[in-house]
């Protein structure tokens, strides 16, 4: 799409307006987290008191702890299941029930959460009636819910990466004597590792952020962070939530920027190496081969 020209003023204006729209609320959230006044929207001078009180709020802290544990557990399970599912979608074109499988893979991404949450809850209730397990709602049921939701996202990311990579690499490994399982671990997995990593991060954020499904699947004593936030926010503005939001934005911001930077850097190095190899090749054809001194060797 890029044609080498500078962006027209109109499009520049569109971008500026668009990003203002996306970011002004977040900026206001951050600014007012440093507000001394208890009235969130009335500026009463700079203060960090809400951060201090946030870190003394036992309810929030324990909810953060639970949310992080659930997020790590679900992201791990989602990455395993989602990678396998993505592999199945990308490599096994047709098998009995493949249509249903693909459907079950995409639907959780768009299905309204009130529906997924309710249906999973009713499943667990039925299971309890039939088998006596799970005996109560809590960590396990939330974990199952989040895993199911997140694995669909992981599968999509992994699948599109798998479709990108050259399938003959796997053929070549098989030709050289590696068996399918070994090929998956030695060839395929390293090549999709970046997709898996981003699937993992995506799962973490989805799980940390999920309110509706969690509300259906949690029981007494298992209150996650979004549930605490929701119950507080429902009652009105709360400066502690502003502080919490600021910290979230900061952490996510740093992570996203760092990940982007690392990826760009890796890509840039790669491009440099390719350019060097091309140059060297020309030199080698023109001059004596000894001139091809390695300058880009890793």
């Amino acid at each position: 799409m890029y044609n080498g020209n500078k962006l027209s003023p109109v499009l520049k204006g569109v971008l500026v307006a668009g990003f203002l729209f996306l970011y002004l609320p977040i900026v206001s959230l951050i600014v007012y987290s440093f507000n001394a006044s208890k009235l969130v929207t009335v500026w009463g001078g700079f203060s960090t008191r809400w951060y201090v009180s946030l870190f003394h709020n036992e309810q929030i802290l324990s909810a953060v702890g639970l949310s992080i544990r659930i997020a790590l557990a679900s992201a791990t399970a989602a990455v395993v299941l989602g990678t396998v599912a993505g592999f199945v979608l990308a490599r096994f074109k047709r098998f009995r029930g493949s249509t249903l499988f693909a459907g079950m893979m995409t639907a959780p991404m768009v299905m309204p959460e009130v529906i997924t949450g309710l249906s999973m809850l009713l499943l667990f209730i039925s299971m309890q009636q039939l088998f006596g397990q799970p005996s109560e709602r809590g960590f396990f049921t939330i974990w199952v819910g989040h895993t199911t939701l997140c694995m669909a996202y992981v599968a999509v990311v992994v699948r599109s990466r798998l479709i990108e990579i050259d399938k003959t690499l796997e053929d070549a490994a098989m030709d050289l004597g590696a068996r399918p399982l070994k090929i998956f671990f030695v060839i395929t997995l390293p090549l999709i590792s970046q997709a898996i990593a981003s699937g993992f991060l995506l799962s973490i954020t989805l799980s940390l952020d999920d309110l509706v499904t969690t509300a259906f699947l949690s029981g007494p004593g298992s209150t996650t962070l979004p549930q605490v936030i929701f119950s507080k926010v429902r009652l009105g503005l709360n400066p502690e939530i502003n502080a919490l939001a600021t910290i979230t934005v900061l952490i996510v911001g740093i992570m996203v920027v760092a990940a982007n930077y690392l990826m760009l850097n890796a890509q840039r190095n790669r491009e440099k190496a390719i350019a060097a190899a091309m140059r060297e090749n020309e030199n080698a054809q023109a001059g004596p081969p000894s001139s091809a001194v390695s300058s880009a060797s890793a």
Binding site: L15, F19, L22, Y23, L24, P25, I26, S28, L29, Y32, L39, V40, T41, V42, T205, L208, D209, L211, P226, I229, F230, V233, L237, I241, N242, L244, A245, T248, V249, V252, G253, M255, V256, V257, N260
Partner: peptide
Amino acid sequence: VLLMLVMLPFWTSFLLRVYAWMGLLKPNGI
């Protein structure tokens, strides 16, 4: 960079982004 800027709100909490508007829009809001 621009793409990252679009992604960033997507990665931050949905709930908190909704909350941000509450502070902006209220009758006695910002």
